[in-house]
Design a protein around this nucleic acid. Structure first.
Lengths: 252, 252
DNA sequence: GACACTCAAAGTGCATGCAATTGAGGCGCA
DNA sequence: TGCGCCTCAATTGCATGCACTTTGAGTGTC
């Protein structure tokens, strides 16, 4: 009587899956900002399960890079460095070029309709919160990936898209999403037309522009704590040279 | 006093990490063939930990696609379909092109030496078991990925390379690795020379030839069981239509 | 001999309990 | 006030126990 068989990847039980999906969504909507604490018992209590399950879910999310786990420490929402964000976008560009290459000229009528419906929803959400816009924009890309029918590709694109989403909340200025929506429409058009190289370059420039709008400066603009800000000044990770800095550094 | 800080990705405790690494290696060396059963208690007993930990490790490996988990069933080593194998190689090609693009002309002397040392080892292992050759060949690619210093890229390349490895054991004829080794040498040379587009196309054709040598036919050649072989003939997954087939089908 | 049914053994799903670690506030001291 | 030490509540690490599900071997019937 399960509502959906939910061809989800590798989710052991489904309570774990439920928690993962909920947290994922909360994270990409920025309800949980990078650095937010995720204690096992609170999570368990909130979802009506034991710590064991909450812990398992955190493990999965950590594998996806959305959560950071350190031994004996409370799990936190991941805080990717600027460089990691850049890397994620580079990977994403390649993967999504592959997606549209496989899809060009191969969409069914109902798939095209589904994509258009989604972009319409993005349009309608323009006045709403940024968080929802960002989520919908991300989901557009995941929807595309889904249409390839390649579970592996879906997983990688989803993961890396979520990670990128996470970085937007760290490094981006308030989102201006209108152009992105037009770019989505252009991509659909090119996919329908079946112009493989056109749609690949469209996707490339789309993601590139999202990335460059988001990752404006290599400096960590906000949401970082003192230690992270100081980190680049440490260089030699060795030891005694930094002893003269404020004690927080030693506390590391 | 930990020997290495081990910048490994997202491994909660380290007992889990140990088990994951051991299983990963066993899988890619085909000590554990696709379909092999991995009961939690046996695993726990073997590694001297409780089922809880073994279970957690299986969860991680499932997230990487090396293990298949089904509710209330014993975990098994994944048995990718031919199509999934093809998809994995496609993704791998894109990711590794990215790797060598980033690396072209940027290798340090010691990195070049490390690569050469590795290929020498591959050479020496040519007479040994296929399993070891395959593992070394895979590790060459992971070594390259590591040199990009992009943890995300490393993770994805490793994962997808392991998956490809897994498919080799399913679909490939006995490995003939000599040409692969020469191709590795050619890639190193092009990387040193710094010819970006040359090295990208070398990597592309290298992986393409590995894939086409491995994935010779879309039919599932061996190691599959009756059910999987019959699967394509079922089409409508519904129900009663297959009732007339041998009873194993119903047993599903 | 083939099928259907039953039931115990094996295995997973999950909660709970106990030990170990952490870090934050409190206390003393200069 | 400012700094360091100490203690204890909060939290994780992990094993274990109990309930439920699956499996397959054995039994009986036709």
């Amino acid at each position: 009587m399960a509502p959906r068989p939910a061809s989800k990847t590798a989710v052991p039980s489904d309570k774990v899956g439920v928690i993962c999906r909920a947290l994922r969504r909360a994270i990409i909507e920025q309800a949980l900002a990078p650095g937010a604490k995720l204690p096992e018992d609170s999570l368990g209590e909130r979802f009506g399960v034991s710590r064991t399950i909450a812990r398992h879910a955190l493990g999965q999310l950590a594998a996806e890079g959305l959560v950071e786990l350190r031994r004996n420490r409370i799990a936190v929402v991941a805080t990717p460095s600027w460089q990691e964000a850049r890397d994620a976008f580079d990977i994403r560009i390649e993967l999504e070029r592959l997606v549209v290459r496989q899809l060009a000229g191969k969409l069914t009528k109902s798939q095209i309709a589904e994509l258009n419906t989604h972009v319409d929803a993005e349009d309608r959400a323009r006045d709403g919160s940024d968080a929802v816009s960002i989520r919908l924009a991300t989901e557009f890309h995941i929807l595309l990936a889904n249409m390839t029918n390649s579970p592996i590709l879906v997983r990688y694109v989803s993961e890396v898209a979520y990670r990128c989403c996470l970085t937007l909340s760290l490094y981006s200025r308030p989102h201006s999403s209108e152009c992105a929506i037009n770019e989505h429409r252009a991509i659909i058009a090119a996919l329908v037309k079946g112009d493989e190289s056109k749609v690949m370059s469209l996707m490339h420039s789309h993601l590139d522009s999202v990335a460059s709008r988001a990752l404006v400066a290599p400096a960590p603009p906000r949401g970082r704590d003192l230690l992270d800000i100081l980190a680049p000044y440490a260089e030699e990770g060795e030891s005694e040279r930094v002893v003269k800095l404020p004690k927080v550094v030693r506390a590391r």
